[in-house]
């Protein structure tokens, strides 16, 4: 196996930071694949092909995590000893619970709007704004490792999970509406 003791940031030669330069991440991703991808070993021995395939798989996995804000936050939390992957997260933030309900209702109502696609567009924008708020929070919270900050980061991750799920539901509805035209 490859050096699996390295975490994804180390594999990419990057500091373990929530803030990443996405251009830089994809540049490094491409440079990594240029040396590990199975296509580079197409006429090599089966063993080399196997190792190449495992390495390319690992690099792909790391890239999936590093380029996605939610996955990156969850991964950083796991490096800091927190399990932010499961369904055990929750929030007591009343304002957010309100917002959660409103967004859900808005999604349910778009079908009946005068111009459903426009309503949906607005909703998608709103969700995006809410996601960006959480990203801004996480950027600050994940700079430290105090228990309070980590607790708050876990809560942010929970909110992001909800928002991202809602976003993809809204997108599915958009696809459905567009297909009907």
């Amino acid at each position: 196996m490859l050096d699996f003791s390295q975490n994804y940031f180390e594999l990419f030669g990057l500091p373990a930071d929530f803030r990443v330069d996405l251009e830089e991440v994809s540049l490094r991703y491409r440079d990594l694949q240029k040396v590990v991808h199975p296509d580079k070993f197409a006429s090599a021995s089966e063993q080399q092909q196997r190792v190449a395939m495992q390495s390319a798989t690992l690099v792909n996995e790391a890239y999936e995590v590093l380029k996605d804000s939610l996955k990156r936050a969850q991964y950083l939390l796991s490096l800091k000893g927190r399990d932010a992957g499961g369904e055990n997260l929750t929030t007591t933030d009343g304002a957010f619970l309100m917002q959660q309900m409103e967004l859900r209702e808005a999604l349910d109502e778009t079908r009946n709007a005068a111009d459903p696609l426009e309503a949906l567009d607005n909703l998608l924008d709103n969700i995006k704004t809410a996601i960006n708020e959480q990203i801004a929070k996480l950027t600050i919270l994940l700079e430290t490792s105090t228990e309070e900050d980590l607790d708050a980061a876990m809560e942010s991750v929970y909110k992001m999970q909800f928002l991202k799920k809602l976003y993809s539901e809204a997108e599915s509805l958009e696809a459905e509406l567009e297909d009907m035209i």
């Binding site: 196996m1 490859l2 990057l14 040396v35």
Partner: peptide, 22 residues
């Protein structure tokens, strides 16, 4: 050895990038 080589080429690929920029 095969794995050591792979790790080595990974490190070399990443060494080409300037870490200071971060």
């Amino acid at each position: 050895y095969v794995e050591r080589r792979m790790n080595n080429s990974i490190q070399q690929a990443m060494a080409g990038h300037n870490v200071d920029e971060f």
